[in-house]
C-alpha cells in the first residue's frame, strides 16, 4: 500500500518576526505547495507562526551520533574561545 504514499516533509516555523525558523515536526504531502498548506493547517492553528519552511525529509543529511565524540568533544577543551577564560583587572569597564 506504500505505492501511493505521500513523501514525508519536515516543517520549520518562524513564530514571530525576528526569530529564526524552528523545527516543529513533520507531515505527509504530495508536493511543496501541499506541504506548506498542510503545515499551515496542522502546525499554526493557534497562531504559532508567521512563516513556514518545508523540506522533504529525505533531503536532510544528519551527523552520525556515533561520531559525536570526534565531532563535538574537541571543542570542549578550547576554553580560550570563551570570554570567561581571560582574566581582567578589577574595575575595568566596558569589556
Amino acid at each position: 500500500m506504500s505505492s501511493n504514499e505521500w513523501p514525508l516533509w519536515e516543517v520549520f516555523i518562524r513564530s514571530k518576526q525576528g526569530l529564526s525558523h524552528k523545527h516543529v515536526g513533520s507531515l505527509r504531502a504530495a508536493d511543496a505547495e501541499n506541504a506548506i498548506n498542510n503545515a499551515r493547517d496542522v502546525y499554526t492553528r493557534r497562531s504559532e507562526g508567521i512563516s513556514i519552511w518545508v523540506v522533504e525529509s529525505k533531503l536532510i543529511s544528519a551527523s552520525d551520533p556515533k561520531e559525536a565524540d570526534s565531532l563535538f568533544d574537541p571543542a570542549d577543551t578550547k576554553i580560550y574561545r570563551h570570554p570567561t577564560f581571560y582574566e581582567v583587572p578589577d574595575g575595568v569597564l566596558h569589556m
Binding site: W6, L27, R28, A29, N37, N38, D41, V42, R45
Partner: peptide, 11 residues
C-alpha cells in the same frame, strides 16, 4: 482522504 486533508477541511 488523508489526515492532513482532514485537518484542512475542518479548518
Amino acid at each position: 482522504p488523508i489526515l492532513e486533508e482532514d485537518i484542512a477541511l475542518t479548518n
